[in-house]
Each structure stands twice: as structure tokens, then as C-alpha cells.
Design a protein around this nucleic acid. Structure first.
Length: 876
RNA sequence: GGGCGACUAGCUCAGUGGAAGAGCGCUUCCUUCACACGGAAGAGGUCACAGGUUCGAACCCCGUGUCGCCCA
């Protein structure tokens, strides 16, 4: 074994071995209980970013843990066709080649995207393999593959027949760059500086005018009414009057509608049904016309003659100018207002009137709410239920049609003869109503999230009845970020309940976001991206995984930096070297510590007990998805207890200095410790643990099923040693501290150490372990002493006193002042304890053990004070 | 406007009622036969602020402030 751990050759080799072993493959016929996760499918255009790495690490930890426990684990991988994103990527490519999708035509374009997919679609899965994902790659799926497309069609047709999908002309969010409709949640609102234009609309046939305020004067051409609130005292008298639109000059009525906020501005608002969602509703209620003035390109049309052919931004300025010239512009003010942007390309989204397909979500959402209420689905952490309910209770219909070419084309055919729409799973040859053959399929494709919503069952073979569905649905766990609760989680729940009659997953773990070290979202434009592959290359996948796991805290974002990953890289090296040391002291014989009970010393019993406790704790924590707590406790245990204390204490015995029986016993303990440590750590850091496991010669492989077996340590001998060990550690610390005070170089041995105690247990502890105190404090001789020795530095521990002999080197004034400092701190403790115990309420109301503990503490402190005072006196 | 979260050592963060913890950084010392990617020791905190509940509060409750996010 190398002295320094090098992850690269080990990680690559083990991943290949795992793949060829076939142990990542889940057997649908297995009799074992199943544990299943479907991966959140990354965009096929994507490459692995830190968010994926975190999300996948979490799932892999759970999958490996469950597999070790003997579950039939399915972790189903796959990718999403990502309509807009993928189409954008290929379109950019075409632009570079000097062509466009419109020039190519639909069929050629779609073919081109498929070609692109074949070429680059493997990128992300190969990166997931680098991370160590134990996915069932035989079952990898793609949202546009044949099976999933069939599921999409089936769902569409059934929802349509049930009246839950409809087509209609409504105001939707339109991205004029992507050239498609977007659903409400695909719009990101941001506060931006804008201008508020106060515009005068003169009455027709009488003097006077009303003033309304708008941020969008270019839409004035589309105004069809002015509205006031029906209970608005100051404006109610206006209702029924008519005004002239200051641009275009049409005459429009003043109406009343509850939508108007009478407190806002003048209490009068313009109604532009074709370009504002609220105005659209008002227009419907009042039977008003819809006048469209902006087209799908974001360009003004002929309904705004003076602005025709201008893009919106330019038209806005021009409109303001025209209003100014005609004296209609009362004033302008700077305001901050919320502006919607396309979540894919950041273009400002226009409310746009067009014919689209929608899912009627209310009934689906109600079932989804109930499923969570009834506890069939559990959010972890629980708080996210609130977010979910809030959205589901106020859900709006889902616009599912997209004016793209890459995606599932809507299975609806309009008849050229009778206008009837035929919706069908199989491509129809004629209109189902009139039999006419002049039918034409809808040009639009479905929202990518429509197919993602089916992912937990479409990937398992639905709509067929498959073994996979009965074995793995409902899945056990969904792991995802809070940013897609609405996009994905809620919709999977609705679709799963509707089509499978069961929830798609039992638990949904919502994790935080990964940010950079100053808390900013990572983004290419900010240049603060930490590339997981780069990190794997530099520090190894294990180090990255353990970092992500350790930094996980429920409900808090993770601030990541390479320096943090480096810290965990050091842990790999520590584990590697501790193992290297252990291996150098073991042989091929298997041993059980139980056969060597008579030869076990305190520290052996202590580490056996601790190892057992930590392994059991790991099991419990992982069962509750507490991967952060679990990772941190293992890290601390391995470094702080196994390495810092146990291995140091075991060295003499392993070298044979304590005799043959002790050597055998220590070997057995070391074996036990490493077996359990490697087992517990494997879900987090599979590569290095697997390599070490093999080096130790423990069974075959850590990914074998049922390998998780904890051999609990629960005998009385082992249970009683924790306190003794604590005393022992304190004695060692106190003496090391004295060495440092005396400026004794670390490698230099001190001659004599005296320990004084009035407690029998401590005396026998010291007697039994004096060699180990000598070892750890580098002393030639440690002895119990009842008399106060001279020429010594002194310090107290709980239950006694430690003396370090320095002879003539004793700097008396310095020692006195050091003891005085120690005395001060003890006095403080005494004061605290005394005041507590003098408080009658404390004594009567606090639990007995707390009061007892306080009494013990006080008497211990008083004993300490007495000793320190004696020491000071003896020096003065 | 509504909601959620955060505020603890110089930095990043653990810590859900019983005497404040880790990693990094800092100071001092050390190449001892697992590891200098290491070891030993140390300094460093009014737990944002103000009230309250409690024998006892970083922790529970109520405000205030600052920052971040989501929804409208």
C-alpha cells in the first residue's frame, strides 16, 4: 500500500468491477423487500453540476445502505428530453452553421436533435458513474423513448376524455425568444426599475377626464374599457361615461369591477384584455372585445399604427413620446415593479392571448393534498408540506402546450371538414365524428414537465402491467431540491394518484441548494461554478461525496468551496493510513474478540463498545435520512477516537510488548473496529472502503447484499469502561498540558510523574494502566503517590492530582502564577455551583440527577481548590 | 402584501431545556517505526438585539433589526 492515498486508480477500477458484477441490477422477481428510487432525470443537454452531485450522492448513500441491509434495491437512472433547453442548444448550433430550424423543416430538425442526443446524451450518465452512482444502468430511460411516449399519450387521452384536458383561447405567458407559451411557474419574477406613466383619458361629450397609471403605455391601443371598483365612493359616479383612448382614439366605456383596487393610484385602471391576465378576466366578465397589439415576436402590429413593427421596448418609449406630444401624459415616475422572465432564457415574458391546451388541475390537486394530509406521502423535512399545500390549494390550470418541435407532439387531430378534434392514442386516419380524412395533427408539443410527471411509473413499464410496477411502485423515496416542488413533485403526486391509484413515493426528501462559499448561487455567468468532475479529478469522488454528505443540514443551504473538499480528502488519507497500520499488524487469521475477553484491557473494551455504538447510530441515522449527522459522527469517531486514542494505545500490544495473548486480543479488536468502520462508511465513501475491505480480506465485496451486519458489543465488561476511559483521557491531557507548560519538547521523555487520588477506582485504574500513561505522556515512570512531591508542576483532574517532576527546572514564580490562574477558574465554578445549590427552587424543582450532579461538581471543585491552595502554599 | 429560513469563535458551520463545540485560519513546539495530507498544546465567543416563560434558555414564546429565499 502506498503511503499516500491516491483515489484515481482505485475509483476507476472498482467502478468497472461493480458494473461487471451486476449487483446494481434489481431483480423484479426478488422475494426480498424492495427499496426503489427513480432518479430526478437531468436534462439530456446537461453536464453534471454540483446540484446533481449532491442530489445523487444522497440517493447513492441511501441505495448502498439499503442494499447492504439486504433490500432489493432499484435506483433507476435516466434523462429528460428537456424541450426548450435542448431545442435551444441545437438551434444555436444551427445558427453557427448559418441555417435555422425553419429552413430545415420540422422533420429534419427533430432528426437533427435525435442525432445530437445520440452523440452527447451519454455525457451525464458517464459523469454520474464517476461519482459512484450505483444505478441500475440496464433500466436507464429517456422521457422521449418509445415506452415513455406511449405513457404520455395514454395519459393525455385519458385526461382529455375525462374532461381534465381542454383547449382554449386564454392569456398565457409568452416568451418571444423561445417562441412558445410557458406555464405560470416557468416565469420568474424579479423586481426591476420601470416607469409609471400617468395618462389622461378625456370624457366623450363632456368636459373632464380620468387619469390612469400604467407601466405599459404601448398597450393603450388595446384598451377596451376603464374600470373602477363598485364601492369606490369617489369614482362610482364615473361608471357609464365614455372616454377616448389617447392613442388610436377609440371610444371606450367606464365600467365597474371588483378586481380594481380602489386604493391604488387614482382608483381607475385601463382594461387591456389581450395583454394582461387580470384584464382578460375582466373582459370576459363584461363581454369586452380583445384587441391584440403585440404579436408573437414581441413586435407591435397594425392595431397600433404609429408603433407598427417596433419591438415592445422601443414602442414603449415611442408611446410615451406620443402621449407627451398630445398633452395626455400627466406625469412619469420611477418605480420598482415585478417583471416576469422566461426561466430558460431570461427574456421578458409577455402576457399573450392565444389558443393553448390546459390541464384542469383542481380535482387532481385535491387528491394530491389529501394524500399528504393522510400521511401517505411524507415530506422530509416536514416544513415543506406547507409550501406544497399553499401551492396546491391555489393551483391554477396548467398550460401544457408548447410551440416547439422537440417533445411529445400533442395527440389531437382537427378535422378540416367539420372542425371536430379527435384525440387518440393511435394516429387516426380519419375524423372520429364525420369520418373525413382531411385531418391535421396539432403542431404543438407538450410541456417537458408533462412527461416528467409520469416518471415514477412510466419508467417501470406503465401503461402495461409489469413485474417492475408491482415490485417497485410506489417508490420508496424521492430526493430533490425545493426549487422543483411545484414543477415536478406536486405533478408526480397528482399523476401518480390519478393513474396508479397510489402515491408515487412514500417519502420525499427535500434538500437544500449548493451555493458558492459566499452564498451565491453558482452560475456560469458569475464564474463561481465549482465543477464536480474537476473536484473528483483533484480530490477523488469519495472526498467530494463525504464533503457533500457532511455539510448536509436539514433546511440550510450548503456553501461549498474547494478548501472544504480538501479537508475531507485529508480524511481519506487518514483512513487509508490507519488501515495501512492495522493491516501491517494483522495476519490472515480471522479472530473474534469474544475469544480473547480475558486478555482485553480497558481501552480495548472502550473502543469495542464505541465502535458498536457508532455503527448502530449510523444505522439509525441513515434510516431517518440524517446523512449529515451520520457522516459527521463517523468522521469524528474515526479520527478523534480510533486514530487519536485507540491505535496509539494498541501499539505496544500489537508489537508484542504485552505478550502473545495481548497481541492476539488486540488484533481481534482492531479487526472488529475496522470491519465495522468500513461497513458504516461504505455508503458515503464506497471506493476507498471497498479497496480497504478487500485488503483486510473481509468477505468478498461491500456491495454484496446483506453485508450489513453489526455485531453489537453489549457485555457488562464493555459497558462500564467509558467512564474509566474518560478519567484516563483527562489524566493524559492534564499531564500533556503540564509538559507544554514546562516547554518540554515532544520527543523528550520526562522522568517521573506522580498521581494522587483518594478514590479507589482511580487508583486501580492508574495501577492497571500506568504503562499507557507513560506511553502517551512520554514519561519514564508513573507512580501513585500519597505524599506531596517536591520539584513538580501540579495540576488537578476530576478525582485527583497529577504531578510532573521537573526538579531544579521548576520556575517557582511562574508556577505560582499559573496555579493562581487555575485557582481563579475553580473559584468561579464554585461560585456558580454554590449559587445554584443555594437556590431552594433549584433544589426542589430540578430533577434529582441534575441536583446530584451539581453537588458532585461542587465537592469536586472544592477538593480541587484545596489542592491548588496547598500547592501554592508549598511553593511560597 | 403573505409566507419560510438564517443570525453561535477571524471564516464556514454543528449544537431543540442542565457549565459553549468542530473544521479551516492563527500562536508555540515536534520529521517518534500508519499518516507532516501528520501529532501535541494554546489563544479566541454578551450564542443579532429587547422582553417573557422556567429552578435553569444558544435552544421555548413575543417583539425588533439585518440578510436570503418563495408566493402574490
Amino acid at each position: 500500500m502506498e503511503k499516500t492515498y491516491d483515489p484515481k486508480p482505485i475509483e476507476d477500477a472498482w467502478y468497472q468491477k461493480w458494473l461487471s458484477s451486476g449487483l446494481f441490477h434489481a431483480d423484479a422477481d426478488s422475494a426480498k423487500p424492495s427499496f426503489s428510487i427513480v432518479i430526478p432525470p437531468p436534462n439530456v443537454t446537461g453536464s453534471l453540476h454540483m446540484g446533481h452531485a449532491f442530489n445523487n450522492t444522497f440517493q447513492d448513500i441511501m441505495c448502498r445502505f439499503k442494499r447492504m441491509q439486504g433490500y432489493n434495491v432499484l435506483w433507476l437512472p435516466g434523462t429528460d428530453h428537456a424541450g426548450i433547453a435542448t431545442q435551444n442548444v441545437v438551434e444555436r448550433q444551427l445558427a453557427k452553421e448559418g441555417t435555422s430550424r425553419h429552413e430545415m423543416g420540422r422533420e429534419a430538425f427533430v432528426e437533427r436533435v435525435w442525432k445530437w442526443k445520440q452523440q452527447y446524451g451519454e455525457t451525464i450518465s458517464s459523469q454520474q458513474k464517476k461519482l459512484g452512482n450505483s444505478c441500475d444502468w440496464d433500466r436507464e430511460r429517456f422521457t422521449l423513448d418509445d415506452g415513455l411516449s406511449r405513457a404520455v399519450r395514454t395519459v393525455f387521452v385519458r385526461l382529455y376524455k375525462k374532461g381534465l384536458i381542454y383547449k382554449g383561447k386564454y392569456i398565457i405567458n409568452w416568451c418571444s425568444r423561445c417562441h412558445t407559451a410557458l406555464s405560470d411557474i416557468e416565469v420568474e419574477h424579479e423586481n426591476e426599475n420601470g416607469r409609471f406613466y400617468h395618462v389622461r383619458y378625456p370624457f366623450v361629450g363632456e368636459e373632464g377626464s380620468v387619469v390612469i397609471a400604467t407601466t405599459r403605455p404601448e398597450t393603450i391601443y388595446g384598451d377596451v374599457a376603464i374600470a373602477v371598483h363598485p364601492r369606490d365612493e369617489k369614482n362610482r359616479h364615473l361608471v357609464g361615461k365614455q372616454v377616448r383612448v389617447p392613442l388610436g382614439g377609440r371610444v371606450i366605456p367606464i365600467i365597474e369591477d371588483n378586481m380594481v383596487d380602489p386604493e391604488f393610484g387614482t382608483g381607475c385602471v385601463k382594461i387591456t384584455p389581450a395583454h394582461d391576465p387580470n384584464d382578460f378576466l375582466v373582459g370576459q366578465r363584461h363581454g369586452l372585445p380583445q384587441i391584440q397589439v403585440i404579436d408573437g415576436e414581441g413586435i407591435m402590429n397594425a392595431n397600433a399604427p404609429e408603433l407598427e413593427n417596433m419591438p415592445v421596448a422601443e414602442a414603449r418609449k415611442k408611446a410615451a413620446q406620443l402621449l407627451g406630444q398630445s398633452g395626455s401624459l400627466v406625469r412619469e415616475e420611477e418605480i420598482e415593479h415585478s417583471v416576469g422572465h422566461c426561466y430558460r432564457c431570461r427574456t421578458v415574458v409577455e402576457p399573450y392571448l392565444s389558443e393553448q391546451w390546459f390541464v384542469r388541475t383542481k380535482p387532481l390537486a385535491e387528491a394530491g393534498i389529501d394524500a399528504v394530509r393522510r400521511g401517505e406521502i411524507r415530506f422530509v423535512p416536514e416544513q415543506w408540506e406547507k409550501t406544497y399545500y399553499q401551492w396546491m390549494e391555489n393551483i391554477r390550470d396548467w398550460c401544457i402546450s408548447r410551440q416547439l418541435w422537440w417533445g411529445h407532439r400533442i395527440p389531437a387531430w382537427t378535422c378540416g371538414e367539420c372542425g371536430h378534434i379527435t384525440v387518440s392514442e393511435m394516429d387516426p386516419t380519419c375524423c372520429e365524428k364525420c369520418g373525413g380524412t382531411n385531418i391535421h395533427q396539432d403542431e404543438d408539443v407538450l410541456d417537458t414537465w408533462f412527461s416528467s410527471a409520469l416518471w415514477p411509473f412510466s419508467t417501470l413499464g406503465w401503461p402495461d402491467t409489469t413485474k417492475e410496477l408491482s415490485a417497485f411502485y410506489p417508490t420508496s423515496l424521492m430526493v430533490t431540491g425545493f426549487d422543483i416542488i411545484f414543477f415536478w413533485v406536486a405533478r408526480m403526486i397528482m399523476m401518480g394518484l390519478e393513474f396508479m391509484g397510489r402515491e408515487p413515493f412514500r417519502d420525499v426528501y427535500i434538500h437544500a441548494l449548493i451555493r458558492d462559499e459566499v452564498g451565491q448561487k453558482m452560475s456560469k455567468s458569475k464564474g463561481n461554478v465549482i465543477d464536480p468532475l474537476d473536484m473528483i479529478d483533484r480530490y477523488g469522488a469519495d472526498a467530494l461525496r463525504l464533503t457533500l454528505a457532511s455539510l448536509t443540514v436539514q433546511g440550510r443551504d450548503i456553501l461549498l468551496s474547494p478548501a472544504k473538499i480538501e479537508t475531507y480528502r485529508l480524511f481519506m488519507n487518514k483512513l487509508w493510513n490507519a488501515s495501512r497500520f492495522a493491516l501491517a499488524n494483522l495476519d490472515d487469521t480471522e479472530r473474534s474478540w469474544k475469544e480473547h475477553i480475558a486478555s482485553l484491557r480497558m481501552h480495548d473494551c472502550w473502543i469495542l463498545k464505541r465502535t458498536s455504538e457508532v455503527a448502530i447510530e449510523t444505522e439509525k441515522l441513515l434510516g431517518g435520512y440524517f446523512i449529515g449527522e451520520s457522516a459527521r459522527s463517523l468522521y469524528d469517531f474515526v479520527w478523534g477516537e480510533v486514530c487519536d486514542w485507540y491505535l496509539e494505545l494498541a501499539k505496544p500490544a500489537l508489537r508484542g510488548e504485552e505478550g502473545g495473548a495481548r497481541r492476539q486480543a488486540s488484533m481481534a479488536v482492531v479487526e472488529y473496529v475496522f470491519r465495522h468502520v468500513l461497513l458504516s462508511l461504505h455508503p458515503f465513501i464506497p471506493f476507498v472502503t471497498e479497496e480497504l475491505w478487500r485488503n483486510f480480506g473481509f468477505t468478498t465485496s461491500l456491495i454484496e447484499e446483506n453485508v450489513w451486519s453489526i455485531d453489537p458489543v453489549d457485555t457488562p465488561e464493555q459497558n462500564d469502561v467509558k467512564e474509566s476511559m474518560t478519567v484516563f483521557q483527562e489524566i493524559v491531557r492534564v499531564l500533556r498540558n503540564l509538559r507544554a507548560e514546562a516547554r518540554i519538547a515532544p520527543q523528550q521523555k520526562v522522568h517521573r510523574v506522580f498521581l494522587q487520588t483518594s478514590q479507589q477506582e482511580i487508583a486501580s485504574l492508574v495501577t492497571a494502566n500506568r504503562d499507557l500513561v507513560e506511553l502517551l505522556v512520554k514519561a519514564e515512570e508513573v507512580s501513585l503517590s500519597s505524599a506531596k512531591p517536591t520539584g513538580c508542576l501540579a495540576s488537578s483532574f476530576a478525582g485527583g492530582q497529577a504531578f510532573l517532576y521537573v526538579g531544579d527546572l521548576l520556575d517557582i514564580p511562574n508556577e505560582i502564577s499559573r496555579l493562581r490562574t487555575e485557582l481563579e477558574s475553580v473559584e468561579k465554578d464554585i461560585a456558580t455551583s454554590t449559587s445554584k445549590l443555594n437556590n431552594e427552587k433549584f433544589v426542589s424543582r430540578a430533577p434529582r440527577e441534575v441536583v446530584d450532579q451539581e453537588r458532585t461538581r461542587l465537592s469536586e471543585s472544592e477538593a480541587k481548590r484545596r489542592r491548588i491552595r496547598e500547592n501554592i502554599e508549598s511553593l511560597e
